[in-house]
C-alpha cells in the first residue's frame, strides 16, 4: 500500500470518477452510438421532404414509412406476412442446421468420410444456390416445400464448413489431456470436442441464419401469396415504395433480432473466451 500513500490525493479521486463514468458510458452510450447515424439520416430526409425540397414519392420519408407499417399492422396483414416468412426461415434454418451439423461432424471426425464426402459438398457449394430454384420448383412444387428447401440449402453450407473446420482445428494437445484421463469416445466428444467447437459453431449459426434471411427473399420472390418477400414484389408491381421500404425495415429488424437471440443464447456458454471481442473491444 506504499504506492497509494505516494499518490497525490487529487490523482486518486481522478482515478475513481472516470471508472464509474466509463461503466455508464459502455452500458448505455456505446450501443446508442450505433443508432446515431441512421437516426440522423432519417431525420434529415424527413426534414427535406417537410420543407418541400423533394416530394418523397420514390423515397418516402420515415413518417410515411411508419404510417404504412402501422396501417399494415392494423389490418392484421403485417403479422400474417411476418409469420409466413419467419416460419419459412425457421423451418429452413432448422433443416439446414441439422443436416449441416451432422454431415460437418462426420466429415470433421472421420477422415475417410471427409475424403468421400467433402469434394462433392464443395462442388455443390460452388453452384450459385439460386440456380437450384427452377429445379426445386419442378421437383417440389411452387408451394412451401421448395421454399424451405432452398433456405435450408443456403443455411447448410456455412454450418457444414464451420463444424468441419472447427473439429479439424481442435488442439491435439487438449485432446491428449482427455486421453490421459482415459475418457471414453462419448465422454471425449462431450467434455472436450463439443466445448472446443462451440465458439466456431455459434459463428457458423449466425452466418447460416444470415444466409437464411437472404434466401427467404429469393424464395418468396419466386412466387408467394404471403410473406415479406411478397410485400416487396407487391410494392414494386403496384408502385408502392413505402411498402417496399416497410418490408425492408422489417427484414432488417427481424434479422438483427434473431442474430441477437443466438448471441444472447450462446453468451453464457462462451464466457470463458479470451478474445478481444469478448471484452467489448475499444
Amino acid at each position: 500500500m506504499a504506492m497509494t500513500v505516494d499518490l497525490p490525493a487529487l490523482e486518486q479521486t481522478d482515478a475513481a470518477v472516470p471508472h464509474v463514468a466509463s461503466a455508464r458510458w459502455s452500458r448505455y452510450a456505446r450501443p446508442a452510438l450505433g443508432l446515431a447515424l441512421p437516426a440522423a439520416l432519417a431525420l434529415g430526409w424527413e426534414l427535406v421532404v417537410f420543407l418541400g425540397w423533394s416530394n418523397g414519392r420514390l423515397v418516402p420519408p420515415p413518417s410515411r414509412l411508419f404510417a404504412t407499417i402501422a396501417e399494415l399492422a392494423k389490418s392484421g396483414e403485417l403479422s400474417r406476412h411476418i409469420l409466413a416468412t419467419v416460419t419459412r426461415v425457421g423451418a429452413g434454418f432448422v433443416l439446414g442446421v441439422i443436416s449441416g451439423t451432422i454431415l460437418g461432424a462426420i466429415s470433421g471426425y472421420w477422415g475417410l468420410a471427409r475424403r468421400l464426402l467433402d469434394p462433392t459438398v464443395q462442388a455443390l457449394r460452388a453452384i450459385p444456390s439460386l440456380a437450384w430454384v427452377p429445379l426445386f420448383v419442378l421437383w417440389l412444387g411452387i408451394f412451401e416445400t421448395s421454399k424451405i428447401v432452398l433456405i435450408a440449402v443456403g443455411v447448410f453450407f456455412p454450418i457444414y464448413l464451420g463444424v468441419m473446420g472447427a473439429i479439424l482445428s481442435v488442439d491435439r494437445k487438449i485432446v491428449e489431456v482427455g486421453r490421459v484421463f482415459r475418457l471414453s469416445g462419448a465422454a471425449m466428444i462431450r467434455r472436450i470436442l463439443l466445448p472446443a467447437v462451440l465458439p466456431a459453431y455459434v459463428v457458423a449459426l449466425r452466418v447460416g441464419l444470415g444466409l437464411g434471411w437472404m434466401f427467404v427473399v429469393a424464395a418468396e420472390l419466386i412466387g408467394a401469396s404471403e410473406g415479406l418477400g411478397y410485400l416487396l414484389l407487391d410494392g414494386q408491381q403496384l408502385g408502392k415504395p413505402a411498402q417496399i421500404l416497410a418490408a425492408i425495415v422489417i427484414f432488417a429488424i427481424l434479422g438483427k433480432l434473431t442474430d441477437w437471440l443466438i448471441e444472447v443464447a450462446a453468451s453464457p456458454l462462451l464466457r470463458w473466451q479470451d478474445a478481444f471481442g469478448a471484452r467489448g473491444g475499444y
Binding site: 494437445k173 487438449i174 491428449e176 489431456v177 486421453r179 490421459v180 484421463f181 482415459r182 472436450i192 466445448p195 472446443a196 462451440l198 470463458w272 473466451q273 479470451d274
Partner: peptide, 18 residues
Amino acid sequence: SPHAKIGIIFQEPRLLPW
C-alpha cells in the same frame, strides 16, 4: 494405454479454457 495410476504434466499447462 493411459493408466489410472499414471499421471502426466506437460510442458504447457494444457488447461481446458472452458
